[in-house]
Amino acid sequence: MPIRTTDQILHKAAWLYYSHGLRQDEVAQKLNISRASVATYLRRAREMGIVTISTSSQLFTDDVLARELEDALGLTSVWIVPEDRSALDPATEMPVVAASVFQSLIRKGDRVGVAWGRTVYHIADVMPFADLQDVTVVQLCGNLGAPYSYRPDQCTTEIARRLNAQGINLYAPLVLSSERLAEELRAEPVIREQLATIADCRLALYSVGGIEDDSHLVKCGALSPDDMRRMGEKGAAGVIAGQLIDTEGQWMDCAHNRRCISADLQSIRTIEKRLMVVQEDEKFAPLVAAIRGGFASQLIVTTSMARRLLKKWNKG
């Protein structure tokens, strides 16, 4: 059974009220819900017996971990997909949870930025159909060669279709053959305007890429395995919207990044809601870099990843 967004809000309201000592109006303000809703959630929490942590369910145990992770990392919201329940397979559960959370974060008239990759593609594939008003879905980075799976334009188009929203694709390559050509293409009025409007997004959906030999940038031919290993030696830790970031989540001044047609990373950081979804254990180091760089305000991870993150942040 999927983790329901309403259950997450219920547990979060109880956590803030009983553990943090916030008043009901303060809880309402923090969760962006009405005070009446807070009172309803707290009543349900008492009826369910979850206000006593020692007698809480496994869901609340995971939820306590989520609240602790929010406090430690300074995130707005964290959702945790358990791995130790036989009824749940994280590989199939993660996209379902992410699709539900993503849709719950969209508001009327929002501009939504979407990146690319296997995680985003699977989220799009399981996303329920909706009829959202005046929503626009925009591509955060340039495109890849036609044979490559999980292309940015595929992810953007499918999510827009599921939401009955307007989709805006960025019809330019992700990586150009020279820095000069990339600079000239970014200066073209159509491309310049599309990249500039990314700062107007209210929500972004993406994951963080790794720098392994089989990473997306290597598979699509943007970098060779040797190139990627050399970038790792120079401090590369992960990939955001096709661009390499270092261990502190900062844009790397390198030939690959200068040849990219992609959103300015500072523009992505200014997006109000930045929903990052990470499932693979091997993405721990890239995820740490992305969080340090301010690329996540909302986070969806597995229980084991959440515990690893909390342990690292508690160590300082």
Rank of each mutant, 00 (worst) to 15 (best):
D63R: 02
R186H: 10
E158W: 06
G238Y: 08
I33T: 05
S207M: 09
K30G: 06
I268G: 08
V101R: 05
W313K: 07
E188Y: 10
I198C: 02
L105D: 03
S178R: 12
R186N: 09
I80C: 08
V51R: 00
R192C: 14
N169G: 13
A87W: 14
L73F: 15
V120L: 02
L265D: 05
Q29E: 02
V51F: 00
E212R: 11
D63Y: 00
V97F: 01
D25A: 06
A165E: 08
K273N: 14
L16M: 03
S86Y: 07
L275R: 05
E282R: 14
A39P: 03
R269E: 07
I261H: 06
D71S: 08
Q58I: 01
W313P: 07
R230G: 09
E68Y: 06
L203Y: 06
Y171S: 03
T247I: 09
Y206S: 13
R46I: 08
F102C: 13
T247W: 08
S100Q: 15
D125M: 00
P189C: 14
F129C: 05
D214I: 08
K12G: 05
R202M: 12
K234C: 08
G294E: 08
D246H: 04
E179C: 12
L69F: 15
R107P: 00
D89I: 15
R274Q: 06
A296N: 14
V277E: 10
E188P: 05
C155Y: 02
V97A: 07
V277I: 11
T270R: 07
R35L: 05
R192V: 04
P95R: 02
I33Y: 03
I211R: 11
K283L: 05
I106S: 03
D63K: 02
S34I: 04
V278F: 06
M127K: 00
R307Q: 12
A237E: 10
R43Y: 07
S100L: 14
R4H: 11
T247H: 12
Q154V: 09
L176Q: 14
V135F: 00
L203V: 14
D25T: 10
D200E: 15
E212M: 07
S178I: 11
L42A: 01
M228F: 09
G145T: 04
I291P: 06
E26Y: 04
M228S: 04
H216L: 10
P82A: 15
W15S: 00
G21T: 00
T5D: 07
V138R: 01
G293N: 09
L275T: 03
V96N: 06
